[in-house]
Design a protein around this nucleic acid. Structure first.
Length: 484
RNA sequence: GGCGGUAUCGUCUAGGGGACUAGGACGGAGCCCUCUCAAGGCUCAAACACGGGUUCGAAUCCCGUUACCGCUACCA
């Protein structure tokens, strides 16, 4: 087997779509598994729809996902000369011919055929023109397109995911390969570029299956080796239709901003249409490289389920070390005005421990920040629901909180074990369930009825801040909401 | 319409002639753990599209039907 050379060839007409990202991922996994090169080609021949911004978005998306590419990025638009030369070779070899039919004439004939409920196929009338006539029209400056003359027979290939697929050539029209303005049609440009890039395996979406016989015919006519093909399934939305804007976020950048980890995104995308076999689900990129095989590629379209992505993200969040999460979390901490980068850096060990404490309960990066407020200096609000439920009778609640404060103020050492012992003792003395101490304390400390274990909260908060929060809560309970 | 592709729980999938009473995961319901919420553990509901073959035996192989998807441009 020659060294594998695969490519990802997006059109820069929007942002990096999750479908494209997944196709890129499969290409990348194949190359990193078997060795070889993963190349990037920007199909920017459609100048009207291509933008610099979306090209950059594609690079950023791939980089974020960790899909690095080899060699220089190829811009299809820069290869116009070669595309035209290849068309010229096909005409010279008599594999293609000039067609003087205008778009308007073609439309008319197509409509007429449709009206008669017939399938329109180009009738090759221009292929029957004499050489003299063709020369005469060319000399006269009559505009022409170039059509590929589809030979008789059948075109088939052994697809790496579908097995043998065959098309009778009679069902393939003599398709245009060069427009009358001299620019190549998609199939022509792709084949010309894939030959030039020495691509050995074309792995792309299965919406290209019916382009493949045309492309194979082109390779052969050009005298080039035909590469292998692997057509991977599409991604659909929850309603079973092709994934589009109305299904919500479709750009990988959207998920990045929602707080999805790249490792989770890549893991989730890989499982949409590929399986390592067995029950493996949560995997790192390295593990996927290890396990990847085209045998595990699915034939049917997969539906994008955001719920499972969230779950997957939660899994990756708990497995990712705090030090790796920190660069993602810190900007959000700063944005939420909880602390400055310098303050966080000054007590990095404490900060990393806090991230470890909160990440277990997070499904998005931002969830860590949402829970982080109580551990920083600024005063906290009390959730109405929490206060109502756990501070039902203010006087009694204040009473218990005061005793709790006393215990904590003098507690030595400041450890979960000591805290637990002291507070359970208190509960016993007062003849109440331990939860009757813990829950009101949780509200005083965090303002919420949900948090990590209460002793973990106390440790992360530190004695000084914890006592201050208790004092604030007591003032609130004694004097009403205004006093806090 | 023509051509091509696909078809296992709601969703992602395991499965490649007998190990299938069809397994796992998400989501749903419930229980356990427990100071709350997550996490974790356990349990439950939930699928081989349909019809014919082939075979001693079919989710697995073949054919047809149906449904869905794609292509059918001087779009990509």
């Amino acid at each position: 087997m020659p060294t594998p050379r695969l490519r990802f060839a997006p059109s820069p007409t929007g942002y990096l779509h999750v479908g494209g990202a997944r196709t890129a991922l499969f290409n990348w996994l194949f190359v990193r598994k078997h060795g070889g090169q993963f190349l990037l080609r920007i199909e920017d021949t459609d100048k009207a729809r291509s933008t610099e911004d979306s090209t950059r978005a594609i690079f950023e998306g791939l980089e974020w996902l960790g899909l690095d590419w080899d060699e220089e990025v190829v811009h299809q638009g820069a290869n116009l000369d070669r595309h035209q030369q290849d068309v010229g070779r096909l005409v010279a070899r008599n594999a293609a011919y000039r067609c003087f039919c205008t778009a308007a004439e073609l439309d008319e004939r197509r409509n007429a055929a449709e009206a008669r409920k017939e399938t329109f196929t180009y009738d090759r009338r221009c292929d029957r023109l004499s050489a003299d006539e063709v020369a005469r029209r060319v000399a006269a400056g009559v505009p022409y397109a170039v059509r590929f003359r589809v030979p008789d027979g059948e075109t088939a290939w052994d697809d790496a995911v579908h097995g043998v697929i065959a098309f009778p050539n009679k069902d393939i029209d003599d398709f245009v390969i060069l427009r009358s303005d001299g620019t190549p049609i998609y199939n022509m440009a792709v084949v010309s570029d894939d030959i030039a890039m020495r691509i050995t395996l074309v792995m792309r979406g299965d919406d290209h299956i019916s382009n493949t016989p045309k492309q194979i015919l082109l390779y052969r006519a050009l005298g080039a080796d035909v590469p292998e093909f692997a057509h991977v399934p599409m991604i659909h939305g929850l309603d079973g239709k092709k994934l589009s804007k109305r299904h919500g976020a479709t750009a990988v950048g959207d998920y990045r901003h929602q707080g999805i980890l790249p490792s989770a995104m890549v893991n989730f995308l890989a499982l949409l249409g590929w399986s390592p076999g067995g029950d493996r689900e949560v995997m790192s990129l390295d593990e996927m490289v290890e396990l990847f095989s085209t045998d595990g590629l699915q034939k049917k379209a997969a539906i994008f389920d955001p719920k499972k992505l969230e779950w997957m993200n939660g899994q990756h969040l708990t497995r990712t070390p705090a030090a790796a999460l920190e660069p993602l979390v810190t900007p959000l901490m700063v944005e939420a005005q909880l602390a400055t980068p310098d303050q966080l850096a000054a007590r990095r060990d404490w900060y990393l421990a806090l991230i470890d404490l909160l990440k277990v309960r997070a499904r998005a990066v931002g969830d860590i920040v949402k829970q982080a407020g109580p551990y920083f200096e600024a005063d906290i609000p009390y959730e109405e629901q929490a206060a109502r439920q756990h501070w039902k009778e203010p006087a009694a609640a204040a009473d218990l909180l005061r005793l709790t404060r006393e215990k904590l103020a003098s507690l030595e050492p400041w450890t979960p074990e000591a805290m637990e012992q002291a507070l359970r003792e208190l509960a016993e003395q007062r003849g109440v369930a331990a939860g009757k101490i813990f829950q009101p304390l949780r509200v005083a400390l965090t303002g919420m009825s949900v948090s990590p274990g209460i002793f973990e909260v106390l440790v992360a908060m530190g004695r000084k801040l914890a006592l201050r929060r208790l004092d604030n809560a007591l003032r609130w309970l004694d004097q009403g909401p205004q006093a806090a």
